[in-house]
Design a binder for these strands. Structure first.
Length: 299
DNA sequence: TCAAGATGATCAG
DNA sequence: TGATCCTCTTGAT
C-alpha cells in the first residue's frame, strides 16, 4: 500500500533482487507485453524512487516507470519460481528471485528525456538527499488552499499520502483546513523535519508508526491497531474513536475526494488564525510549537 | 456471492 | 467536483 516510503523500499528491494544482472521481464496479464519485451534480457543498472514514482534503468532498454496508485502492489519471492497467479502486469525474474506487479496505475518504459520531465514536475521528496524544502514552502506560502490539500499535491511535495498527511498535521497541532498562506515558516520547517524522520522510519520498517512512547498500546494499556498499514497512529482512520492525547472524538471529512482525519481539540482551526503581524509574534508562536513537537516512536 | 472501499491520479465539465 | 481506472480484501447478505 503505497506512500513514498513504500516506493523507496521497492527501489531497494528490486535492486537487491536483480541489480547489476540480466533480468527476464514478462507480462503474464498481457497488458504490458511490448514494454516487457523492451526490458527482457537486459542488465538492471540502477533503481530509484522520486515521491511515489519508481524508476529502474535497464541498459539499452530505457527506464521502467511504475506508479502504484491506490491499489498497486509488488510481491517478491524466491526460487523455485511459481506460475503467476491473478492479474500480474509485470514479472521480473532471474534464477533466484521474482517480483510480480499488480494493479499499478502506471507501468511504462520512458526515455531519458521523459524521465527528466517526470521528475521536473514533482515537488521535493523528503526521502531524497537532493530535496529542497524551500521549493515546497514557496508554493505553500503563496496558496490559499488548505494545508491538508497542499501536502497531498505531488507538485508541492512528493511522496506524502493520506496517512502521513493526517499524522504530520496532528503532530504539528495544525488544523488541516488552515490556508497555506497562514502556515508559519517555522511550522513548515517542523513538518518537513518530522516527515523526514517518520518516512525514514517507514523505509526501514515498512510500517507507518507515528505515536510517541507515551501513546503506544503498551503505555496506554489499549489493544494494538490491526489493519492493513500495520502501524500505530493518532488520527488516520480513527474517526469516531477517542484522541490518544485529549480524549476528544476524532473527526473525518472528505477533502478533494480523499478522507481527512483530525482531532478537533488538538489541531487548531484554520479560520481563527491570522498572519503574523510582526516577526516577534511569529517567533513566539513557533517557539511554543517546536517545544511540544513529539518524537518518532523508538522501537 | 456480491458490493464497497482503499495509502492515487487524471480528465471532463 | 464527480467519474473513472486499477486489483484485492473485507464484511454484509
Amino acid at each position: 500500500m503505497p506512500e513514498g516510503h513504500t516506493l523507496h523500499r521497492l527501489a531497494n528491494d528490486v535492486w537487491d533482487a536483480f541489480g547489476g544482472r540480466v533480468v527476464r521481464a514478462s507480462s503474464p496479464q498481457g497488458r504490458f507485453v511490448d514494454g516487457a519485451a523492451l526490458l527482457d534480457g537486459r542488465v538492471l543498472r540502477h533503481t530509484e524512487a522520486h515521491g511515489k514514482h519508481f524508476l529502474a534503468d535497464f541498459e539499452g532498454g530505457g527506464w521502467l516507470h511504475i506508479h502504484l496508485g491506490l491499489i498497486g502492489k509488488v510481491d517478491f519471492g524466491s526460487a523455485p519460481i511459481p506460475e503467476p497467479v491473478g492479474q500480474v502486469r509485470l514479472r521480473l525474474q532471474n534464477d533466484a528471485a521474482y517480483a510480480d506487479l499488480r494493479g499499478a496505475t502506471v507501468c511504462e518504459v520512458l526515455t531519458d528525456g521523459e524521465r527528466e520531465a517526470l521528475i521536473g514536475r514533482l515537488g521535493p521528496d523528503p526521502l531524497r538527499d537532493d530535496a529542497d524544502p524551500d521549493l515546497a514552502w514557496k508554493r505553500i506560502q503563496r496558496s490559499k488552499l488548505p494545508i491538508g490539500r497542499l501536502l497531498m499535491d505531488q507538485e508541492v511535495l512528493s511522496g506524502v499520502g493520506n496517512v502521513y498527511r493526517a499524522e504530520v498535521l496532528f503532530r504539528a497541532k495544525l488544523h488541516p483546513m488552515t490556508p497555506g498562506n497562514l502556515v508559519r515558516k517555522r511550522e513548515w520547517q517542523g513538518m518537513w523535519t518530522d516527515l523526514l524522520e517518520l518516512m525514514k522510519y517507514g523505509v526501514e520498517t515498512g510500517r507507518i508508526d507515528t505515536v510517541t512512547d507515551d501513546h503506544t498500546p503498551e503505555a496506554m494499556g489499549r489493544d494494538p491497531r490491526r489493519d492493513d498499514h500495520g502501524g500505530e497512529v493518532y488520527v488516520y482512520r480513527r474517526h469516531g474513536q477517542h484522541c490518544h492525547v485529549c480524549d476528544s472524538v476524532i473527526r473525518t471529512e472528505l477533502l478533494a475526494g480523499r478522507n481527512l482525519f483530525w482531532c478537533p481539540k488538538c489541531q487548531r482551526t484554520g479560520q481563527t488564525r491570522k498572519p503574523p503581524a510582526t516577526p516577534a509574534r511569529a517567533s513566539r508562536a513557533s517557539r511554543s510549537t517546536a517545544a511540544k513537537k513529539p518524537q518518532v516512536k523508538k522501537l
